[in-house]
């Protein structure tokens, strides 16, 4: 019996070489989505537009599963290399803030949509995947695809891009980031992001 157990363990270790606590990516997305939406459904404050509360929720439940460095890198494309490590850190922090605020805003606009999860199969050895979901709106036309791109890291699967209806929330910044860098250098981009986040802060406090 013990022998059998050992073989079984050996088999598991052999087939999932890097897995420590790696929940499968589709399971991760499903769990987090359901958890967050359950909270939003019960929270009248968030539903009536309390962005601050939504931000707290996102920071606690969603952020740990995102790789913001990778996101910033993707959004900045080749300009990323132009930035020194200190600038890269500031850029990542500011971009994170912007994305969190956007995501939180979207949560406060949540009505009664449900999320459908499309079939997903993880091929052995895959470290970069796309998990497809869709937002079903009761009677408001076509469903909206909401896809997550995840990459396997030592600490589990991390989201590095989200596509809504085919629009990547990360690469959609690419042109405007590039324009900022062209006009004001890396520091120009940092300034714009900071200014944007400041105005966002002001409106979310007002709410």
């Amino acid at each position: 019996m013990k022998y059998l157990f050992a073989i079984l363990c050996g088999f598991i270790v052999a087939t999932t070489p890097m897995a420590q606590d790696a929940t499968a990516p589709d399971v991760l997305i499903k769990t987090v989505t359901n958890e967050v939406l359950d909270i939003v459904r019960k929270d009248k404050d968030i539903q009536s537009g309390n962005t601050r509360k939504a931000i707290d929720l996102v920071e606690a439940k969603v952020l740990p599963h995102f790789n913001f460095t990778r996101m910033t890198q993707l959004a900045m494309a080749r300009d990323w290399r132009q930035a020194n490590p200190a600038q890269q850190k500031v850029l990542t922090d500011e971009f994170r803030l912007l994305l969190v605020r956007t995501y939180s805003k979207a949560l406060t606009e949540y009505k009664n949509q449900t999320i459908g999860f499309k079939p997903f199969a993880l091929k052995p050895g895959e470290t970069d995947v796309r998990v497809r979901t869709e937002i079903k709106q009761s009677g408001a036309g076509k469903n909206i695809e909401l896809d997550y791109f995840l990459e396997k890291a030592s600490s589990g699967w991390k989201v590095y891009d989200i596509e809504v209806g085919g629009i990547s929330l990360v690469t959609n910044y690419r042109e405007s980031f590039a324009a900022e860098v062209r006009n004001g250098g890396i520091d120009g981009l940092i300034k714009s992001l900071q200014a944007k986040n400041k105005t966002g802060e002001a409106t979310s406090v007002k709410k």
């Binding site: 956007t102 805003k105 085919g166 910044y173 690419r174 405007s176």
Partner: peptide, 20 residues
């Protein structure tokens, strides 16, 4: 909430969306 520059945000979203 999201756009740094609304014009280019909308433009790039439109182009991505159509491509999709």
């Amino acid at each position: 909430e999201a756009a740094l520059d609304k014009y280019s945000y909308v433009r790039d979203a439109y182009l991505q969306r159509r491509r999709n």
